[in-house]
């Protein structure tokens, strides 16, 4: 098994629908923290009903603990549901902002690569470009690695957003 398949096997994406109340994020985080589970990314956003929020959490760890975590998340009074989604029946998407060094010599190449990856240059200054890219995590990883050659100054990524396909509810 290669490192990358191991990585994807241990990485789990949970999606949750939660009450839009103070403290709910702490309650959710405590379920992970108590079991020594590290959260890789976490997105909290509005849902179509303002009473509820969406959470998408990416975390690494063993399956038995994950099973306990999902059950304990569902036990929280403020959680309407929490579930892990099968990547083959769901769509995930992520956004990255990357600030890359831009010298007169490198600028053209950076712009060329950005086009190829459908990334947008959203800010230009004398010595840096900010590039916005959205897509699946693997594409974002690839583009990030490519940009490292030119000098990445800063990077911000949103973490995965997930939605179940077809009739299935997220």
């Amino acid at each position: 098994m290669t490192d990358s398949t191991q990585k994807s096997k241990d990485t789990h994406i949970l999606s949750m629908l939660v009450a839009n109340k103070p403290g709910v994020l702490v309650r959710v985080a405590l379920v992970f923290a108590r079991r020594g589970f590290n959260i890789d990314s976490l997105v909290v956003s509005a849902s179509i009903n303002p009473k509820y929020s969406r959470m998408t959490i990416t975390a690494k760890g063993d399956l038995a603990t994950l099973d306990q975590i999902i059950k304990n998340l569902n036990k929280l009074v403020d959680v309407l549901h929490a579930s892990e989604h099968d990547p083959t029946h769901s769509i995930d998407h992520e956004l990255a902002l990357i600030k890359v060094k831009a010298t007169p010599a490198s600028k053209t190449a950076v712009v060329k690569h950005s086009k190829k990856y459908h990334a947008k240059i959203v800010d230009v200054t004398d010595n840096a470009l900010i590039i916005a890219q959205s897509g699946v995590t693997e594409e974002l990883d690839e583009f990030e690695n490519l940009m490292r050659k030119y000098g990445v100054i800063e990077m911000v990524r949103s973490g995965k957003l997930l939605m179940a396909q077809g009739k299935e509810a997220t």
């Binding site: 103070p22 403290g23 405590l30 108590r34």
Partner: peptide, 14 residues
């Protein structure tokens, strides 16, 4: 106290 007790309550309110 809402924060302090979070790990040991079934539920809590402020």
């Amino acid at each position: 106290i809402f924060g302090v007790t979070m790990p040991v309550v079934k539920h809590s309110y402020l």
